[in-house]
Design a protein around this nucleic acid. Structure first.
Length: 496
RNA sequence: CGGGGUGUGGCGUAGUCCGGUAGCGCACUCGGCUGGGGGUCGAGGGGUCGCAGGUUCGAAUCCUGUCACCCCGACCA
């Protein structure tokens, strides 16, 4: 383990990359743009999955699995969707390799094994799924159809970053079909609420809920709702999206149902997804210059216990006590790691578990055994002295339970304060540019509602409209760019 | 795809200009002392110098080609 992480204030993106690697979350692979998610990182993702999966099931959804490949003819059926993803598709054209006659021991694509129809590696699964739904839906009695799948998708990105943008990523995609427009819209909103609740409660990530503008909308959707978070460097990150698809896919794939009167109608659709990008959001929201900071609810290890001892007998004595503590904590649903590796001294272990973001560390030494105490240190306080306190051995369980709750709340509060402090209303384009340059963050400003203005602002400042927040009040104003009338403020930011 | 840069033990690098058979730090292995914030001493193991050609008595170093990665742009969850 090499020492030292770059400072956030000096080079935020270097800090992020190094942190991801050094904390053992993920690393680059032999495959261009694709990452290896390491066990510790995957354990966090699994906790996210478990929690989201339960929320999906609780709202009536079932899991299923659809193919990785999409025949080109299916893919292009919904034109806007196909067009939107066309530029970033991986395509399978052949199904066989053979020995290269010119190069000993090398393989080549067998030109005789060309597929009659190319297969697109799914960048998203609407096409296959709606093609399937056609067969599943005949009557209003088949509706609503509420399906989710956990899968990998591929989008051939030019520039990639661990978790934030990789060519292959893991996600879940929900795809539902409904008898009425209103029901589909309600579903779209409900799932956005699920995402928001997950982000706030589990990830301690405060998010803004809103609607995307037309140019930021999902290709093939009528409306895209989103949750947006603000990272510590003042850039916004889209953490989840939920789409009202109207009847676009139903029409493209001829998915009709007979209503109670026996009349045939197209169904109404939604889709919604969150990806391993959430890992990036989690990392960038809470972590500090000492390393990762994980909210207790998603931490694979909530408490690490480090023994402090001299000699084998010392370790044996401490271990005896630690085993009691560990049993007590574990039986109360707390995940505990006892780091009894003899090869490292306590200081090195402290640093390592800090880097890995374990919420609580308990140090138990021979001195503690005499005094009947332990030292508990919380990860969410950056100052190492302030983070520590000495606790009576008998109170460890309730202390730990209390502290874990405290940390979860504190992380959320800190992140929320940061967002509030970094959300600014501006009323002129000058001010807009000034804020963007000096402070970044969310900027709440009036916009005339046209794609042209949005595009101009994007070109000139790199800031985009993240969303039109649901809670944006109606108020008369003038567009900061064009001076035309506007009825409400929208949220701008530079984004990941 | 344009512009810039880098490929040398697991990681980070020196050496490349000016060719002479690869060095350092971290990590690793073994042993000792140590142990309340990244210990220390000693002994050891590990490298087709991205890949393929070429020049040369001799190539990490020079030449040609090629691949990969990083940064900056154009595109994006």
């Amino acid at each position: 383990m090499s020492k030292g992480l770059p400072k956030r204030s000096e080079d935020y993106s270097l800090w992020y990359n190094e942190l991801v690697k050094k904390a053992g979350l993920a690393e680059n692979s032999a495959v261009r743009g694709c990452m290896v998610i390491k066990p510790y990182g995957f354990a966090i993702w699994e906790k996210m999955q478990q929690s989201l999966d339960k929320m999906f099931k609780d709202t009536g959804h079932e899991n299923a699995y659809f193919p990785l490949f999409v025949p080109k003819s299916l893919f292009e059926a919904e034109e806007k969707n196909a067009e939107g993803f066309a530029k970033e598709c991986a395509i399978v054209t052949h199904y066989r390799l053979k020995n290269d006659p010119d190069k000993q021991g090398k393989l080549m694509v067998d030109p005789n094994a060309k597929l009659e129809e190319e297969l697109i590696v799914r960048p998203t699964s609407e096409a296959v799924i709606w093609n399937t739904y056609k067969n599943w839906i005949q009557s209003y009695r088949d509706l609503p159809l509420l399906i989710n799948q956990w899968a990998n998708v591929v989008r051939w990105e030019m520039r990639t970053r661990l978790f934030l943008r990789t060519a292959e990523f893991l996600w879940q995609e929900g795809h539902t079909a409904h008898a009425t427009k209103q029901e589909a819209i309600d579903e779209t909103k409900q799932m956005l609420e699920v995402y928001a609740e997950f982000a706030e409660n589990m990830m301690a990530l405060p998010v803004v809920k809103g609607v995307k503008t037309e140019s930021e909308r999902f290709a093939g959707a009528e409306d895209t709702y989103c949750i947006e978070g603000l990272m510590q460097d003042g850039k916004a990150l889209q953490a989840g999206t939920s789409h009202f698809l109207g009847q676009n896919f139903a029409q493209a794939f001829d998915v009709k149902f007979a209503d109670k009167e026996g009349k045939l109608e197209h169904v109404w659709g939604t889709s919604w997804g969150v990806s391993t990008r959430l890992m990036g959001a989690l990392i960038m929201t809470h972590s500090d210059d000492n390393g990762l900071v994980l909210p207790p609810k998603l931490a694979p290890i909530q408490v690490v216990i480090v023994p402090i001892y001299k000699g084998e007998e010392g370790l044996a004595k401490v271990t005896e006590k630690v085993n009691e503590l560990k049993k007590q904590l574990t039986s109360n649903g707390i995940s505990v790691k006892y780091d009894n590796r003899d090869a490292f001294r306590p200081g090195a272990k402290f640093a390592e578990w800090e880097l890995k973001g374990v919420p609580l560390r308990i140090a138990v030494g021979e001195r503690d055994l005499e005094n009947g105490t332990v030292e508990i240190s919380r990860r969410d306080i950056e100052d190492r002295k302030e983070a520590k306190k000495i606790v009576n051995m008998d109170n460890v369980l309730e202390e730990v339970q209390g502290l874990l709750n405290d940390i979860q709340d504190n992380l959320h509060t800190k992140a929320l304060n940061f967002r509030v402090e970094n959300t600014r209303e501006v009323n002129s384009y000058e001010e807009f540019k000034e804020v963007l340059e000096s402070k970044s963050g969310f900027i709440s400003a009036h916009w005339d509602g046209t794609a042209e203005t949005e595009e101009k602002i994007k070109q000139e400042t790199k800031a985009t409209i993240r969303c039109i927040p649901f809670d944006s009040k109606l108020e008369e104003g003038t567009c900061i760019y064009s001076g035309k009338p506007s009825k409400q403020r929208v949220l701008f930011a530079k984004a990941y």
